[in-house]
Design a protein around this nucleic acid. Structure first.
Length: 1092
RNA sequence: GCCGACAUGGCGAAAUGGCAGACGCAUGGGACUUAAAAUCCCUUGGAGGGCAACUUCCGUGCGGGUUCGAGUCCCGCUGUCGGUACCA
C-alpha cells in the first residue's frame, strides 16, 4: 500500500473516482427547466454544446476530450459565475459505420451500439466532465427518433412560400387552392395573391402540392455506391468516391427522397454574417452554397423552332460568344442534331452517360466534345454560331448549356483552341478609346483574360466597364425579352434517403403509386427486427426483406428507405432542452429560455442605452422640426443592421430599432403572449400623431416586399400615400387572416427627396432593390452609430460575457464545416419558419478545436502506431492531468502534437498544488501541511493571487486556456515558496483551478476545510487596487534602443518621468551633446527619446 | 489553378503597435540521498568581450514601407498545412 502510494506524487487514483461518485450522487450538474420546482429564473442561461460523438467500437481517442474539456471548463466557470448552464451529452448512433461494424462483428447494430455507448459514457465520466446526464440523448432511441420522423413530416407537410421565401404549412397552400375566391378578395390588397394565382394557373392542384413539398420524391440521377449498397448525398461524395471508405460512386436515376435545401440558399448565406463563427467555416459554407449572379439568355436554333437557355455570369461578353455548348444530357440535342452528325453525337452522349463522376473529373484535363451540325443565333448580334456538345458543361448546374466566350473563359479557351473555334476579344483590361475599340475585330488575342475590364467590339456596350456593361446588357436583354438576370446556386437539394437498415424509417406509406404521410399518432415508426440486414447488393433496400413490416394495409406498403445519419444530428441540440417529452419534440417555454428567444445580440449597459436613445430622438426632431413622434427603441437585430449596412454603407453596429408603441401594444394584444418585451426596451418618448394610423391603413397600397420578422412572423411591406406623405408600412401576419401593424416608417415630402425616419427589423424589406429604388436614391440613414470596437461591445462578444440567442457556444471539429452545420441550420430555419423554434440560427458561436497529432507530428492512426489512448493517460497521471495537458498544449484552435513529457509537466504542477496543502511524512503518508496557516495574505501574495483570479477569468472567457494555466503555475510557484502559507490564498487558487482540474480542486477544497463542493463555489472576485504597483519600472529608449530602466512612482507626472529618464547615467551618456527632437512617454510603459 | 489559415529558441508556445521568448518540456549544473527515484534551487535565443558584478552586437520565413517605436499594421514574395476543383 505505502509503496504504491509512494510512487504517486499525489493520490489522484483514490480521490478522482470518489468525486465523480459525489457529483453523480448529488446530481451536481443537473440543471432545471423553466417551470420545474426550484428553477431560478433570475439567472441568465448559458448553453454550451459539444458535437456529440458517434460511438465507434474503438472508444475515445485523445482528440475527443480536447473540445469536451474546453466546454467543460466554460460550463463549470459559467456555473460558478451565476448562470444556469445547459451542458449535455448524447450519442449520434445511427448510420453507416455502426451498421458496417455490426455486419463485420456479426451482431445486431443495436447491440453493438449499446455496448459502444456504454464504453464511451464510462470513458467520459472517468474524465470528470460535468454533463447533465439526465439529459442524455441517443438518436437510435425510439423516444428520440419519433421526433426526427416528426420533423420529417413537418418538411413533408410544408412548402416554400414563393413571396415570403419561408416555409409554411402545406395547409395554407391547400386552403389557398380551395378558397381561392375568398382569399383572392382578402389578399388582393396585399398584392400577394396575384403571384400565388400565377403559380396555380393551368396546374393540377395535387401536382402543385407535390411539387412544392420541402421533402419530395425525385427520380433524378443520384450518387449510387455499389460497394456500400446505398445512395449518397453530394456532400458525402469526394472526388467521385464515397467519403466513407473511398469506394467508387456511379450516377444512376433512382426514386429518392430529397429535401429542398436549395430554397434556403440565400438565407443560409445571409445569416452567416451575424454569427460568431471562424471566418474560414463561413467561407466554406458560402463556397459550398456557391451563389453567383448572372443572366439567362435565350438562343434560338437556326432553321428550327427549338430554343435553349444558357446561363452566364458574364453577360457583358455576349458579343464574344463564338459557339455554344450543351451538356451531353441536354434534352434539345436530339431535336437539333443534323443527320450527318447524329451518329457521332449519339456515340459521344452514350460514352458520357456511362462515365462516372470520377471518370469525368479524372479525364477533365483534356476537353472533349462533338459538333451537332446545328447553329444558334446570337440574340444580340444576330450572328450564326455552332452548337457543340461537351461534357465540360454540367447538366445539373445553371441551364445545362452555355454560350462559350473563349477569349474570356479558360475552359472555353482551351476547348476553342483544341477544336479550332474562333476566339474574339470583347473585354480589354485597359480602356481603349477609338482605335480598335469598336466594330468587329477578328484578330485573335494571344491569351485568355478572365478579369474585369472594358467592353470592346461589343456594339452598344463599347467602352463600358465590366460591371456597367453587365447591367446594361441585362437591361437590354430584359427589354427585348430574350434574357433575364438570374441568381444561381451551386447547392443542390439534399438527397435524404439511404438503402440501409440502421437508420430512421420514413413515416410514409405508398398506395396506388402515391405516397402519403403517417399520422403523428403512429410515431415512432420502429424499424423491423431483422436478422439479415445486409445490403441486398441492389438498389432494393434491406427493409424489403421484412415482408410483414412492409405491408401497411391491404393496399398500402411502407417506404423502404431509411434516413441518413445526418437526420438525427440535425436537431439533437434541441432535444437536450427537453429530452423526455413525449408530447412534443421539446417544450416551447424551455426552448425559449435555453435558446434565448428574447436576448438581443448586442447587449448594452443601461446608461449607454439611454444616451443612444436621446441621440435618436434628437435626430428625429432635427429631421422633422416641430413634429411629435411616439417612438420606442429596441435593438436592431443583426440581419436588419447588416441589410442597412449593405444598402447604405452606414455602419449600423449598435444602432437602434424604432418601433411604434401602438404597434407593440396591438400585436401583443392580438398575438396573446408579449412578443416584444424587456430587455428589448420599449420606451415611449413623446406623444405621436398616431391617430393617423387608421387612415394610413385604409389608404391604397403597393406591396414592395415581404419577409420575416425576427420574432418569426410574416411581414409584408407596403408603400402608402396619405395627404401627400408617403408611409412605408410593415404588416405582420401573426396567424392566418390576422393583420397587425408592427413597424412604421414614415417619410415626408415627395418620393425623390424624402428620408426615412426610422427603420424596421426586417432584413428582406430593407435589402430589396424595390425599397431602394422606390425613393429614387439610396436610402439615407445618418444615425450616429456606436463604436463597436469599444470595450463594452468587444467584451460582449466574448464567450459568456452575456447569453446569446441560440446555443451560446458550440465546439467541435472542422470536419463538419459543411455537412452537419449546413443541414442543421437548414432544419432549424424550417422549424423557425413554422414557429417551432424562436431563433433563425441554432449556433451563435462556433469554435473548432484543432487536430491533435501523434508524438511524431503525424496524424494519429492505428497503422502509424502513434495513437494515444486517454484511458492510459488517466491511469498513469489521472484525469485532471489529462484535462490540464489538453488545454495547456496550445491554443484550442491550433493543430498540435501530443507529448507525453508535456503531460508529465502539468502532472508535476498538479502535484505541486497538492503539496501546497499536504505533506508527506517519513512513512510516506500524506498529512496536512504544517506550513498552511490561517494568516492573512501578505501584500505580495495577495497581489499574485488576485492577478491570477483576474487573468484566469479573462482567459477562460477568451478560450485562452493555455495562458490561464500558465498564470496558475506562476501563482503556485509563488505560494510554494511562502512559509507560513496563507490558507485563504491556497483556497482561492483551488477554487479557480476547479474548472480545469475539478477532482483535485474538490479534494483540496475539502482538506482546507471548505464546506460544500468546490464546483458550487461562486467565482471569486478580485481587488483591482491590489494589482496596482506603487513603483513602476520603465525602460528608456534612445532612438528606439533600450538604454536603461528607471523606476518611477505610479503617480509620477510626465515631466517628472522625463527628468528621471534624462538623468539616468546610460541615457545621459547617449544623449549628451545631442539635440532632443522628440520625447515620448507612454505612461506605465516606456520612454523614448529621439535625438538628432 | 482557386480559396483559406499559418510562419517566433532544441520542442509546445507567450506578447491592447511599447522591455521578444511568460509558462511548460528538454538541456546543463547544484542540494538532499550510500545510491536511485521523487523533490527543491540555479542555468539555457545566437555570437562576442571581461577574473568579476557585468557588457556589446545580432535576432520573430524573405524584400520593401508606415511609425519616435513593428513579431504585431500596409505592399510585394517564399514556404508549410488545410479545403476545393470543368459550378460557365
Amino acid at each position: 500500500m505505502s509503496t504504491e502510494q509512494r510512487r504517486r506524487p499525489f493520490p489522484f487514483d483514490q480521490f478522482e473516482p470518489k468525486w465523480q461518485r459525489v457529483w453523480d450522487e448529488r446530481q451536481t450538474f443537473h440543471v432545471l427547466n423553466p417551470g420545474e420546482p426550484g428553477f431560478d429564473a433570475s439567472k441568465p442561461k448559458y448553453y454550451v454544446l459539444d458535437m456529440f460523438p458517434y460511438p465507434s467500437g474503438s472508444g475515445l481517442h485523445v482528440g475527443h476530450p480536447e473540445g469536451y474539456t474546453a466546454t467543460d471548463i466554460i460550463g463549470r466557470f459559467k456555473r460558478m459565475s451565476g448562470f444556469n448552464v445547459l451542458h449535455p451529452m448524447g450519442w449520434d448512433a445511427f448510420g453507416l459505420p455502426a451498421e458496417q461494424y455490426a455486419i463485420k462483428t456479426g451482431q445486431h447494430p443495436r447491440a453493438t451500439t449499446e455496448a459502444n455507448v456504454a464504453t464511451f459514457k464510462k470513458q467520459l465520466q472517468a474524465i470528470g466532465f460535468g454533463y447533465d446526464w439526465q439529459r442524455e440523448v441517443n438518436t437510435t432511441d425510439p423516444g428520440y427518433f419519433k421526433w426526427t420522423q416528426w420533423i420529417f413530416l413537418q418538411l413533408y407537410n410544408s412548402y416554400l412560400d414563393p413571396i415570403l421565401k419561408i416555409a409554411r404549412p402545406m395547409k395554407y397552400l391547400e386552403d389557398a387552392l380551395s378558397e381561392e375566391p375568398k382569399l383572392q378578395h382578402e389578399w388582393q390588397e396585399s398584392g400577394w395573391l396575384l403571384t400565388l394565382h400565377d403559380m396555380f394557373k393551368g396546374t393540377d392542384q395535387s401536382d402543385l402540392i407535390e411539387r412544392n413539398r420541402l421533402a419530395y420524391i425525385s427520380h433524378a440521377p443520384v450518387n449510387w455506391c455499389p460497394e456500400l449498397g446505398t445512395v449518397l448525398s453530394n456532400e458525402e461524395v469526394i472526388d467521385g468516391k464515397s467519403e466513407v471508405g473511398g469506394h467508387p460512386v456511379d450516377r444512376r436515376p433512382m426514386r429518392q427522397w430529397m429535401l429542398r435545401i436549395t430554397a434556403y440558399g440565400q438565407r443560409l448565406i445571409d445569416d452567416l454574417d451575424g454569427l460568431d463563427w471562424p471566418e474560414s467555416i463561413k467561407m466554406h459554407q458560402r463556397n459550398w452554397i456557391g451563389r453567383s449572379e448572372g443572366a439567362t439568355v435565350m438562343f434560338t436554333v437556326e432553321g428550327s423552332s427549338e430554343k435553349f437557355l444558357v446561363y452566364t455570369t458574364r453577360p457583358d461578353t455576349i458579343y464574344g460568344a463564338t459557339y455554344t455548348v450543351l451538356a451531353p444530357e441536354h434534352f434539345s440535342i436530339d431535336v437539333i442534331t443534323t443527320d450527318e452528325q447524329r451518329a457521332v453525337v449519339r456515340e459521344y452522349r452514350e460514352k458520357a452517360a456511362s462515365k462516372s463522376d470520377l471518370e469525368r473529373s479524372e479525364l477533365a484535363k483534356e476537353k472533349t466534345g462533338v459538333f451537332t451540325g446545328a447553329f444558334a443565333i446570337n440574340p444580340v448580334s444576330g450572328e450564326r454560331i455552332p452548337i457543340w456538345v461537351a461534357d465540360y458543361v454540367l447538366p445539373s448546374y445553371g441551364t445545362g448549356a452555355i454560350m462559350a466566350v473563349p477569349a474570356h473563359d479558360e475552359r472555353d479557351w482551351e476547348f476553342a483552341r483544341k477544336f479550332a473555334l474562333p476566339i474574339r476579344e470583347v473585354v480589354s483590361p485597359e480602356p481603349r478609346l477609338g482605335l480598335g475599340g469598336g466594330g468587329v475585330c477578328d484578330a485573335e488575342p494571344l491569351e485568355v483574360f478572365c478579369g474585369e475590364g472594358f467592353a470592346i467590339h461589343s456594339g452598344p456596350l463599347d467602352g463600358l466597364p465590366t460591371s456597367e456593361a453587365k447591367a446594361e446588357i441585362i437591361r437590354r436583354l430584359q427589354e427585348t425579352g430574350v434574357g433575364k438576370s438570374r441568381i444561381q446556386f451551386k447547392l443542390r437539394d439534399w438527397l435524404f434517403s439511404r438503402q440501409r437498415y440502421w437508420g430512421e424509417p420514413f413515416p410514409i406509406v405508398w398506395e396506388n403509386g402515391k405516397h402519403r404521410a403517417l399520422d403523428e399518432s403512429e410515431l415512432p415508426l420502429l424499424p423491423p427486427e431483422l436478422l439479415d440486414f445486409k445490403p441486398t447488393g441492389t438498389p432494393e433496400p434491406p427493409l424489403s426483406k421484412a415482408t410483414d413490416w412492409v405491408r401497411y394495409s391491404d393496399t398500402a406498403t411502407r417506404e423502404l428507405n431509411t434516413m441518413p445519419q445526418w437526420a438525427g444530428s440535425c436537431w439533437y441540440y434541441l432535444r437536450y432542452i427537453d429530452p423526455t417529452n413525449n408530447e412534443r419534440p421539446f417544450d416551447r417555454k424551455a426552448e425559449q429560455y435555453w435558446m434565448g428567444a428574447n436576448i438581443p445580440p448586442y447587449p448594452k449597459d443601461p446608461a449607454k442605452v439611454r444616451s443612444e436613445l436621446h441621440k435618436m430622438l434628437e435626430y428625429c426632431r432635427a429631421r422633422h422640426s416641430g413634429e411629435r413622434h411616439r417612438l420606442a427603441l429596441g435593438y436592431v437585430d443583426e440581419t436588419a443592421a447588416r441589410a442597412i449596412r449593405e444598402a447604405t454603407g452606414v455602419d449600423t453596429r449598435g444602432m437602434f430599432h424604432v418601433l411604434d408603441t401602438y404597434a407593440i401594444n396591438h400585436i401583443n394584444k392580438t398575438h396573446g403572449a408579449p412578443i416584444i418585451e424587456e430587455p428589448r426596451g420599449q420606451i415611449a418618448v413623446t406623444d405621436d400623431d398616431y391617430e393617423m394610423i387608421p387612415s394610413v391603413l385604409a389608404a391604397p397600397d403597393r406591396i414592395i416586399n415581404a419577409g420575416k420578422s425576427h420574432q418569426g412572423l410574416d411581414v409584408l411591406c407596403f408603400v402608402k400615400q396619405v395627404n401627400g406623405t408617403i408611409f412605408v408600412v410593415e404588416e405582420v401576419r401573426a396567424a392566418k387572416n390576422t393583420l397587425s401593424i408592427v413597424t412604421m416608417w414614415k417619410k415626408k415630402g415627395t418620393a425623390s427627396d424624402a428620408d426615412i425616419v426610422a427603420c424596421s427589423s426586417t432584413s428582406k424589406t430593407l435589402r430589396s432593390p424595390e425599397v431602394l429604388t422606390h425613393f429614387g436614391k439610396p436610402v439615407k440613414l445618418e444615425l450616429e452609430s456606436a463604436d463597436m470596437t469599444a470595450p463594452e461591445y468587444r467584451d460582449s462578444r466574448k464567450v459568456g460575457a452575456s447569453p446569446s440567442p441560440g446555443v451560446d457556444l458550440y465546439v467541435g471539429g472542422t470536419e463538419h464545416a459543411v455537412l452537419h452545420l449546413l443541414y442543421a441550420r437548414f432544419w432549424h430555419k424550417v422549424l423557425f419558419d413554422l414557429g417551432h423554434v424562436s431563433t433563425p440560427e441554432p449556433f451563435q458561436r462556433l469554435v473548432n478545436q484543432g487536430l491533435i497529432l501523434g508524438e511524431d507530428g503525424q496524424k494519429m492512426s492505428k497503422s502509424r502506431g502513434n495513437v494515444v489512448n486517454p484511458d492510459d493517460v488517466i491511469k498513469e497521471y489521472g484525469a485532471d492531468a489529462l484535462r490540464l495537458y489538453e488545454m495547456f498544449m496550445g491554443p484550442l484552435e491550433a493543430t498540435k502534437p501530443w507529448s507525453m513529457s508535456g503531460v508529465e509537466g502539468v502532472f508535476r504542477f498538479l502535484a505541486r498544488v497538492w503539496r501546497l496543502v499536504m505533506e508527506e511524512n517519513a512513512e510516506g503518508e500524506w498529512l496536512p501541511s504544517t506550513t498552511l496557516q490561517d494568516i492573512p495574505m501578505d501584500k505580495a501574495t495577495a497581489k499574485v493571487v488576485h492577478a491570477t483570479i483576474k487573468k484566469v477569468g479573462e482567459d477562460i472567457e477568451a478560450l485562452s486556456f493555455n495562458t490561464a494555466i500558465s498564470q496558475m503555475m506562476v501563482c503556485t510557484n509563488a505560494l510554494t515558496s511562502a512559509n507560513p502559507r496563507s490558507r485563504e490564498a491556497v483556497r482561492l487558487l483551488v477554487t479557480i483551478l476547479g474548472p480545469f482540474a475539478p477532482h483535485l480542486a474538490e479534494e483540496l477544497w475539502e482538506r482546507t476545510g471548505g464546506t460544500g463542493l468546490a464546483a458550487d463555489q461562486p467565482w471569486p472576485g478580485y481587488d483591482p487596487a491590489l494589482l496596482i504597483e506603487d513603483e513602476i519600472e520603465m525602460p528608456v529608449q534612445v532612438n528606439g534602443k533600450i538604454r536603461e530602466k528607471i523606476v518611477v512612482k505610479k503617480d509620477a507626472t510626465q515631466p517628472e518621468i522625463e527628468a528621471i529618464a534624462k538623468a539616468a547615467p546610460k541615457v545621459a551618456e547617449a544623449i549628451a551633446g545631442k539635440e532632443i527632437k522628440k520625447l515620448i512617454v507612454v505612461p506605465g510603459r516606456l520612454v523614448n527619446i529621439v535625438v538628432g
